[in-house]
Simulated assay, not measured.
Amino acid sequence: MKIQAGCELRFTAEADVPIILMLRPRSGDAQWIVSDQYLIDPVVPVTEFTDSYGNLCQRLVVPAGPFTVSTSTQAETADEIDVAVGAPYTPVQDLPTDVLGFLLASRYCPSDQPAIAKQAAAIVDGLLPGYNQAEAIRKWIHEQITYQYGTSNAQTSALETLENRIGVCRDFTHLGIALCRSLNIPARMVVGYLHELDPMDLHAWFEAFVNGRWYTFDATQAVPKGNRISVAYGRDAADVAFVTQFGPMTLDNMEVWVKPADTDTPT
């Protein structure tokens, strides 16, 4: 299915503020970027670079005053995500070198904490190592953690989400990653767009590496859903922030849309 997704972010900067944006997706196995548009107002010099995870990043300095970023992307996306019940665990010694880092505890995913390991062991008890374990973790989070806005913040870790049993997509994702890593299953965070997400927003989910490849798991959804546009990948939210600012700047408004590409986009 060809979908169109985008966002408009409106800021106010108190003075010149250097920022890094991560809002431009690239083509991959489950998506082909047909076209994209990236507008900033006022226009300032922008340098684009690729980070260590392959994400496209834009570096610029926001001038004092109001500033707007608007993006729009058309992409051919997979209607369904791949499901591989029974796919086996990939032993650590057989993992590609660039996957090894996704086994390690990170800022928001303290997979080395005893409480995380204990919960993961309870969730997957008796299951075949690999895909079935990652799916059991996704299902457990969906059923046991309450989705509610305003219940967490930018500092909330997977351990806190496990203790409080409440959060949003970011928190669901961090918990899924931490639980998988505690079982020596590599897991990474993905941020982007999901068609028919309700309520509509920029979204986050996780991928687990089993049977020699990455598979998608979204603990906010009851069933597997395709038609996603992945924008960025990383160990956790610290690696995939849509906006990283190095000075005082306020986000005044954010609008996000995802729809079939033949419909009109908000202006």
Rank of each mutant, 00 (worst) to 15 (best):
A115C: 00
L100Y: 08
K225F: 00
G86C: 06
T220M: 11
R138T: 03
D262T: 12
Y193C: 06
V62S: 06
V223Q: 14
I185L: 06
G130Q: 04
K139G: 00
D36P: 00
C57G: 05
P63D: 10
Q245E: 10
T12A: 07
R213E: 14
P129Y: 09
H142P: 02
P25E: 11
P18V: 05
Y89M: 07
L21N: 05
I229N: 06
L179S: 12
V210N: 03
T90V: 03
A154N: 13
G126V: 02
A134L: 04
R170E: 14
Q245I: 00
R59A: 12
V99C: 05
R10G: 00
W257D: 12
G167I: 15
G86H: 10
E135I: 01
Y149G: 15
S182P: 05
I145S: 08
L104G: 03
N184I: 00
F49P: 00
L159Y: 05
W140E: 08
F209V: 01
R235K: 12
F246V: 01
I33N: 09
P266N: 14
Q37P: 00
T156H: 13
H142M: 06
E255Q: 14
L175T: 14
G65C: 02
D79Y: 03
L194M: 10
N253V: 01
G192R: 02
H174I: 10
H174M: 12
C7M: 14
P42Q: 04
